[in-house]
Amino acid sequence: MASQGTKRSYEQMETDGERQNATEIRASVGKMIDGIGRFYIQMCTELKLSDYEGRLIQNSLTIERMVLSAFDERRNKYLEEHPSAGKDPKKTGGPIYKRVDRKWMRELVLYDKEEIRRIWRQANNGDDATAGLTHMMIWHSNLNDTTYQRTRALVRTGMDPRMCSLMQGSTLPRRSGAAGAAVKGVGTMVMELIRMIKRGINDRNFWRGENGRKTRSAYERMCNILKGKFQTAAQRAMMDQVRESRNPGNAEIEDLIFLARSALILRGSVAHKSCLPACVYGPAVASGYDFEKEGYSLVGIDPFKLLQNSQVYSLIRPNENPAHKSQLVWMACNSAAFEDLRVLSFIRGTKVSPRGKLSTRGVQIASNENMDAMESSTLELRSRYWAIRTRSGGNTNQQRASAGQISVQPAFSVQRNLPFDKPTIMAAFTGNTEGRTSDMRAEIIRMMEGAKPEEMSFQGRGVFELSDERAANPIVPSFDMSNEGSYFFGDNAEEYDN
């Protein structure tokens, strides 16, 4: 993207840094990872977990959730003011799984939030270390993106479920800051804005008074975040219109849905970061690795190297396929839920299948599930090659597409044709070009129609051997075009429920 120079890199967003050079960025990201790792080690000690239990991804998720809940100030305040039966607002906890007599047992633990905050700050040299908290939120978000298709949420806001490739980060909490905003897809931002506008339509006082002023500035800020994701002048001009509207209503909703559809071809720039579970960072720190000293990046080879040398386990339900569970977590670790499966298959070195073909449910185990038949197995999170994460949407291309997802959002900077089903997408653009945004709409449609099938995206960008740390010898991959490109292809993934 041309304006790259004016933006802070995501590592800076990730670490609240002012302008830093590459070495400083690597050190501050490393410091953040160190903090998460030290916190995780301490929690495993508190909970008396064995090494194996500490490497269980379900335990990692519970521990991450506990610290996120302990620092969720708004919710904590709300819980104190609106006490609900049987919930102690000062405590947080969740299921911890232990191996007892050759069987997995679930144990519900409860801790004072104050105590968890103390352990977290102690692991982070006394700081609140917001960057580390956001990092864990993005890992949870990436896992949700890989596990669930947001059909219901899309339909509720009037969008087409086939636009799911635009929904990265749709389950990120509001408090995820600049680093969170960077990884949100165009569809996620559109959905947040539509929800806001709908509230304004239904509630006369939404934009009024002292609160209304705050609401208005939040609305304009979200519009600017979305505008910054678009790469064409016409899309940005249309966002200006939406932002400046005196009284946002149905016309703005129409414009936003139009823009979301246009992003299936004229893709937005959305950041991709490899955020790993805390149970990967903990053992690495415990083994003596100093992330701050060595430096770390979320968008280069580092996460690949770390996963190459990590042992992570997962509980497996009786009829689940461990290899499929591994694929789910591998995609989440690489922030690749909406990437082209052919690119992923090449990088991973084994075939990556669409969601609907995987015999696996989510990673988390519900409290009512029976533990008797639970097994555990090693997650295979290694890769054959590594590639640089991208934040450009890439230019655009036609490809055989599917009944489910009709476009992709690249996660890796790797040369390819970008699949999208042009006739299906263009069919949504018939007729409606009147109104105050008509010239911009016409211009956007013209650009979409001009998108050429034979153009290559990320020209000359390749993948790298894991021994090639400096990215000196790019390998331009070859793809098996007979395979499906979309992950949520004609899909039956479970729906995400809060």
Results as ranks from 00 to 15, higher is better:
residue 363 V to R: 13
residue 449 E to R: 08
residue 306 L to H: 08
residue 381 L to R: 15
residue 151 T to G: 04
residue 346 F to M: 06
residue 249 G to A: 04
residue 438 S to Y: 01
residue 40 Y to G: 08
residue 246 R to Y: 00
residue 339 E to V: 12
residue 300 G to M: 11
residue 136 M to F: 00
residue 328 L to Q: 02
residue 280 V to P: 12
residue 304 F to L: 09
residue 294 E to D: 14
residue 282 G to C: 08
residue 498 N to K: 15
residue 268 G to D: 12
residue 313 Y to G: 00
residue 147 T to C: 04
residue 61 L to E: 03
residue 355 R to E: 07
residue 126 G to L: 15
residue 294 E to R: 00
residue 410 P to R: 06
residue 35 G to L: 02
residue 275 C to A: 12
residue 438 S to Q: 12
residue 26 R to E: 04
residue 450 G to S: 04
residue 288 G to V: 05
residue 191 M to S: 01
residue 181 A to K: 07
residue 52 Y to D: 04
residue 74 R to V: 09
residue 219 Y to N: 05
residue 422 K to P: 09
residue 305 K to G: 13
residue 167 M to V: 04
residue 264 L to K: 13
residue 464 F to R: 14
residue 264 L to A: 05
residue 275 C to E: 09
residue 249 G to F: 10
residue 437 T to W: 10
residue 47 L to A: 04
residue 259 L to M: 06
residue 346 F to P: 14
residue 140 H to Q: 15
residue 180 G to C: 05
residue 182 A to I: 13
residue 167 M to D: 10
residue 146 T to L: 13
residue 247 N to Y: 07
residue 89 P to N: 03
residue 376 S to W: 02
residue 77 K to W: 09
residue 78 Y to P: 12
residue 235 Q to F: 11
residue 396 T to Y: 02
residue 327 Q to P: 14
residue 81 E to D: 04
residue 404 G to D: 09
residue 323 A to H: 01
residue 23 T to I: 06
residue 366 A to L: 04
residue 266 L to I: 02
residue 125 N to L: 00
residue 487 Y to N: 02
residue 404 G to C: 12
residue 188 T to G: 06
residue 369 E to I: 07
residue 260 A to N: 10
residue 289 Y to Q: 04
residue 158 G to D: 13
residue 280 V to R: 12
residue 405 Q to T: 05
residue 279 C to N: 12
residue 111 Y to V: 00
residue 301 I to Q: 06
residue 280 V to Y: 12
residue 35 G to Y: 10
residue 229 K to Q: 02
residue 388 I to Q: 07
residue 224 N to S: 13
residue 326 S to M: 11
residue 389 R to T: 03
residue 379 L to C: 15
residue 20 Q to V: 13
residue 83 P to Y: 14
residue 229 K to T: 01
residue 300 G to Q: 13
residue 337 A to P: 05
residue 1 M to D: 10
residue 328 L to H: 04
residue 14 E to R: 00
residue 62 T to C: 02
residue 277 P to H: 05
residue 470 R to G: 12
residue 475 I to M: 06
residue 93 G to V: 05
residue 356 G to L: 06
residue 149 Q to T: 06
